[in-house]
Every structure is written in C-alpha cells, then in structure tokens.
Computed example of a mutant assay.
Amino acid sequence: MKIALVHDYLTQRGGAERVFELLCKQFPDADIFTSIYSPKTTIDLSDRIVYTTDLQRIPGSAKYFRLLAPLYFEAFRRLDFSSYDLIISSTSSFAKAVRKRPEAKHICFCHNVTRFLWDTKTYLREYGKYRKFYPALEKIFQYMRKIDLGFSQEPDIYIANSTTVGDRIQRIYNRPAFVVNYPIDISKFIFSNQKDNFFLVSSRLLSYKRVDSIVEAFNWLGLPLIIAGDGPERQQLEAKALSNVQFLGYVSDAERTYLMSKARAVIVAALEDYGLVPIEANASGTPVLAFGAGGVLDSQVPGVTGLFFNRQTPDAIQSAVLNFKTIDWDYERIRNHVLSNFTEEVFFKKVEKIVSGAFDGQQSQIF
C-alpha cells in the first residue's frame, strides 16, 4: 500500500505537529507532504524527503505563513496524489482539501475545524496584530467559509482528538468523526507517590488560560502555588499575587517533569478543545483540578484522576481545592488510567482499526 502523509504547514512545533511527528514515525515508508516546510523551526523529520507546494517558493512564506491563508486550498489541490492508496491528512484547516483517486482512501486527523473562519473573533483575540484588519478579513472569510465547507467533504473518514472537536466537526461540516484521544510519550514523565506541599500551574500566561482566577483563589486560600510558564499576562498576574504564589517563568522539560511529579495537584482553568497537560499530570501520578468542560471531559475521571469546577471563577476554584483536600488520592491508580488510555500503543491500535475498516467497509464496527 502506498501511503501519503499530509500536514497543513510545517513551520512551527505545536500539538498538531507533534501528532504528525508520531504519524511519520508510525509510517516510516510513507511520503510526506506539506504546503511550507521550515526544518529549523518544526518537528524533526531526520532525512525524510518533504514535498511542498508552490507556496514554499514565496520569500518569507515560513515566517508569514498565516498571511497566505487564501492561497492554501488551491495549493493543496494542485498536489498530485493519484498514485497513492491511502492519504492521511493532519489538519486544522487546509490539508483536508487534497485530491485522491476514487478507489483510494483519505483519513483526516482533524485537530479542529478551521478556527479563523468559524471562530474569527476568538482567533483574532489571540493574534491581536491582525484585529485591526477585521472588517476586510470578514469579507474574505465569508467567501472562504463556503470553500472550506466544500472541501470538508473530501475525506472519507474523520478522526477527532476529543468529543468536543468531534461534535464541532459534526455541527459545522455535517460529518461524523471517530474520537481517538491523542497520546503522550509516557517515558518522558516520572511517577511519584510522594507529593510536596504545593499546587502547580503549567501554562502559557495568556488571558484565555484564566490563570488570573487561579491566582485570586490562592490569594484567598494562602496555599503554596507554583506557576511554570511565561507569556504576556505575567506582569499583570505577578502584580496581583501574594507571597504564597511563585512565578518561575520558562522552565526546562526536566524541571517541568519534576514539578509535575511532586505537585499535590495540577490546576487547569482554561477551556481547551483537548489539552495534554492534564494527561501529563496524571502520567506523573498527580491529580488534576480542572474547569469541567471541553477536552478534560474525555481525559479525567472525577474523584479518581481529579476534580472538576463548573465555573472559571476564584470561588469555584477555592471550593474545588478544599474538596480536593478531603480525598485520599490513589496515585498509582491515576498513573494506570493514563497507561490504559493515553499511550502511543493504545492510540495506534485504534488508528490501525480505522485504517483497516476504511478498506474493508467495516467502519461502523471499528470500536
């Protein structure tokens, strides 16, 4: 079977790129395609050949890749996949548009619907430098939404990383999706059943992460809180924090791993489509206190691996922490939950079933 792996663009190293890296390792003989490739700033593909689109030749395309949004769909359409039996796309936007021959199969790992088209205002809050162009962008995006809906029908099968994303694919693209939770590399995390007297936040300091609510809650609680991570909200957060709240800024992977293993709990107040931090904490044997919406509904078992709070407010977080302290947590059970559900082995067993089902017509009986 001749396989092609396709990703939107390989210009950065985020969660979607790490999943694509796993796919490349799992299918070592597959050909790799993307729109723009910047090997210095993205995942390590070793000596694998990466085929790109015409956009690669535009000066500055790797740095200003977001500005090329109206050009990606047609760039992917021009790629020739006529010789491939299986196309696996990894996309949050454009790669789902690739063409295939009728008897071939296209399985799409859809990390999200195209956010800048379907949740434009939220997207522009994260990329504020583009906000002033909103009136002009909205006219372009209205046209692009129609194109996106059309190309959303190209894949034969969708795979979503969470129930939240699967529901979004169904609602916007009117396509069902298999939910296969993305894995972590379990070997990178240290299990410990000996916890120190601090709570941990591991996050970029962005407004939607709602770290401000966590800081206010711990100002009232007076319990030790360590915040690992940096971002534009740091100065404002430090100004309101009391002495029991410590900001570490950027930490190395080794230090972050150690903190994860020794924290009493990791606290997540953001609404995430999926979110790997809660799973990484559990892999360390550490329970999670999380806002009970989005991806954590797939990854957490209340009372076993962590607790939910139902509002992103200081008082809701305070109540969750006080409730947390009354529970005798089984750290080994927390770790075992990850081993049973979120390893690469578990992930690819499900993927293999989907691939096999795509070719034998048994998709409805996969899980």
Rank of each mutant, 00 (worst) to 15 (best):
I58K: 06
L124M: 03
D156R: 04
Y208E: 12
I157R: 01
F109V: 05
L237E: 10
I327T: 06
Q12D: 05
P176S: 14
F359H: 08
F27I: 06
E233Q: 15
F27N: 03
D29A: 08
K100Y: 06
R131S: 14
Y208G: 11
E154M: 14
R99K: 11
E255N: 12
E154G: 07
A228C: 09
E280V: 05
D273I: 11
S38T: 12
A95D: 01
S243E: 15
A283R: 08
Y64W: 13
L242A: 02
I3F: 04
I157M: 02
E21K: 12
G357I: 02
N193W: 00
I186W: 09
F359C: 04
I49Q: 12
A290Q: 11
L221E: 02
Y51R: 15
Q142I: 02
V113W: 10
Y258G: 00
V19K: 10
D253H: 13
S93I: 00
D360N: 15
N193I: 00
P70L: 09
Q12E: 13
F342L: 00
C24P: 01
G275K: 08
F189W: 14
H111Y: 14
S187P: 00
F198C: 06
D298M: 08
Y9C: 07
E352A: 15
R311P: 01
G249C: 01
F308G: 02
P39I: 09
P39K: 09
Y274D: 06
Q142T: 13
E138K: 15
A290H: 10
I88L: 15
N310P: 00
K350I: 00
I169H: 10
R99T: 01
V215E: 04
N282F: 01
I214C: 01
I279P: 05
W220V: 11
G15T: 07
V304S: 06
T122F: 15
H7A: 15
G294P: 04
Q365R: 06
D47M: 00
E233V: 05
L242S: 14
F116M: 09
E17I: 07
S261Y: 12
V268D: 03
D148Y: 10
S38N: 13
D44L: 07
Y258K: 15
D253K: 11
V50C: 03
A160T: 06
D330L: 09
R335L: 04
N310F: 10
G166L: 11
I190K: 14
F199Q: 11
